[in-house]
Write a protein that binds this DNA or RNA. Structure first.
Lengths: 253, 253
DNA sequence: AGTTAATAGTGTCCGATAGACACAGTGTAC
DNA sequence: GTACACTGTGTCTATCGGACACTATTAACT
């Protein structure tokens, strides 16, 4: 799997089978043979259950098939390959973005809540962090999350490219912190780093003086909040500066 | 590989074999048998060459061994398993962080240059983006990169935890943008997203109105810079606000 | 110098995995 | 009622990571 083999792109107008699956451009309904015993959704949920419980490495076609009560090869009637299964699982794991609590709110609290919601998804399904690396087709849920972020920025004076960039930057931050979080079960950036490197650092503080000093200083500061909060505050502060600059430049708009 | 099996942690004081390899706590020198024909460094460089050229999926023990002219099993005399090989490859690919051009510079241009240097590494070895997900031991080069970022922030009034958080946030942003960059060869966040989803979006603009509008707007704005610049500027703006706040709070320090 | 034992590289084997393919049962359209 | 499309199964293959036994090499010890 995940090989660089050519997928689809043939006579289907450039639509890979994965995209067709994700976007529900499924088979026509008037079917002749026996009724399928499974649904794509059930398969995806079974895969998510396996990955949630035992990690992405434990996700095999066999294991997933057993979870839904069929043999491995039966799954290939529904998905062309494991990559597509994982794509469906990502969609299932992300789910719909939360309904915006107060759509008339200012952009900043909306983006803040949005980022925390996304973070919560990634923490709950930490295998997704491994699965979403590399080129892959985008599903409707994933796009809906982006839509929500960009929508929160509507009418605040930022250009279209800037709104997209803000969303992308936030996704990047959330993913990065979620990865640190997953590396050590429950911890911010400091704890995550400290867990693995504290003993190393202690023995080589002359080689990494600034790091050693920062860790020491952080230790008797008492950790003030976690890495998600910190980065989020910094990024949104930076966005706010830009928004204000744009508003000053075109106050009447 | 990448399984959640127990590694080391036995009588070696909690040092996994991967850590020993990365930190050069190698075997003692007075050895009895035949001279090794290989070095860890040569093996790592061979692996990097394979992954650079053909992607991480093409990296097998067999392929790497062939590259250095031995059989697959010979590699196991040097590395305990594939995970450790990949860890060495990451170290080799990251390399030493660039010497700080002007150590007496202000923190902001230093961090900016640092982030761009890191980005360049990730773009050159995009397989590393896949390889660094999940819990894994940290190597000296990786730590040296963190050291450089934290050192750039020394004496600017930020606490130890904050300095670490800034570095972690920047790494997260760089990695995220590098992933988008790798997804479509050569492109910022907008191009990266547009590549895959533009056709989808065109057909479903009523479902994703804000996204559609943002893309349309971005298209006739002419893309103003790339995603790395944008996010970097926003994050550093946010950090600058915090630095200024801290300086005001303790001006005499 | 001769012996011993630790080490290096090789060949062979095994279990797990993704996927191909042929086959038998099933249910709808004609 | 019959043909045919479709579903799930069993079998087979290629590939990969890794275990293990074996031979060749070379430094340490007597």
């Amino acid at each position: 799997m995940t090989d660089t083999r050519e997928r689809g792109g043939g006579g289907d107008g450039g639509w890979s089978p994965a995209l067709a699956l994700l976007w529900g451009t499924g088979r026509p309904v008037g079917r002749r043979g026996p009724r399928p015993t499974l649904t794509l959704d059930a398969i995806a949920r079974a895969g998510v259950a396996v990955a949630d419980a035992e990690g992405l490495a434990a996700l095999t076609m066999q294991r997933t098939a057993a979870e839904v009560g069929v043999t491995k090869m039966a799954l290939y009637r529904y998905v062309p390959g494991k990559d597509e299964l994982v794509a469906l699982m990502i969609e299932a794991a992300m789910g719909e973005p939360p309904r915006d609590a107060a759509p008339k709110d200012a952009w900043r609290p909306r983006l803040d809540a949005w980022a925390r919601g996304l973070f919560e998804r990634f923490v709950r399904h930490s295998w997704a962090l491994e699965a979403i690396v590399g080129p892959r087709p985008m599903g409707p849920h994933e796009l809906a999350w982006m839509e929500a972020a960009v929508a929160a920025l509507a009418g605040c004076g930022l250009g279209g490219g800037e709104r997209l960039d803000v969303a992308a930057t936030l996704v990047g931050h959330v993913r990065a912190v979620a990865q640190q979080h997953a590396a050590v079960a429950g911890g911010g950036a400091e704890e995550a780093m400290a867990e693995g490197i504290a003993p190393l650092l202690a023995a080589r503080r002359e080689q990494f003086p600034a790091l050693a000093e920062a860790f020491a200083s952080a230790a008797h500061e008492g950790s003030g909040g976690d890495a998600l909060d910190f980065g989020l505050a910094r990024i949104l502060d930076g966005v706010e500066l830009l928004v204000n600059a744009r508003r000053e430049a075109a106050p009447g708009e």
